[in-house]
């Protein structure tokens, strides 16, 4: 499942996309501790799979919360993306 966490507002679309089919194969959830602001968590989804997700309280502020890890012009991937060995996380902006 491709889970889009985030929002669209007047300034653009800000979604963190997590491919939970890849999460299911992951036992360590390395992306969770990689996020310096603790936006990610491991949850049991509606189909009883253990997957990563953006915390509910953080979903409507990802543009600002992720900004320190995504400076304009940065070539390196944000820590959460870099930590996922299965390339299961991406940002739409």
């Amino acid at each position: 499942m491709k889970a889009h966490y985030g929002y669209k507002d007047g300034s653009g679309e800000y979604f963190i996309v997590i491919d939970t089919d890849r999460c299911v194969q992951c036992s360590d959830g390395a992306c969770v501790p990689a996020c310096p602001l603790g936006l990610l968590e491991r949850i049991q989804d509606d189909y009883d799979d253990t997957v990563c997700a953006v915390k509910e309280a953080s979903r409507n502020k990802v543009k600002y919360a992720c900004a320190p890890c995504k400076p304009v012009g940065a070539a390196a991937a944000p820590p959460c993306v870099a930590a996922c060995a299965r390339a299961g996380i991406r940002h739409t902006w």
Binding site: K2, A3, Y7, D9, F15, Y47
Partner: peptide, 12 residues
């Protein structure tokens, strides 16, 4: 009827 992709917008 199993979800394969979703997006939710409840910002406004």
């Amino acid at each position: 009827g199993k979800v394969t992709s979703f997006l939710m917008n409840d910002k406004c």
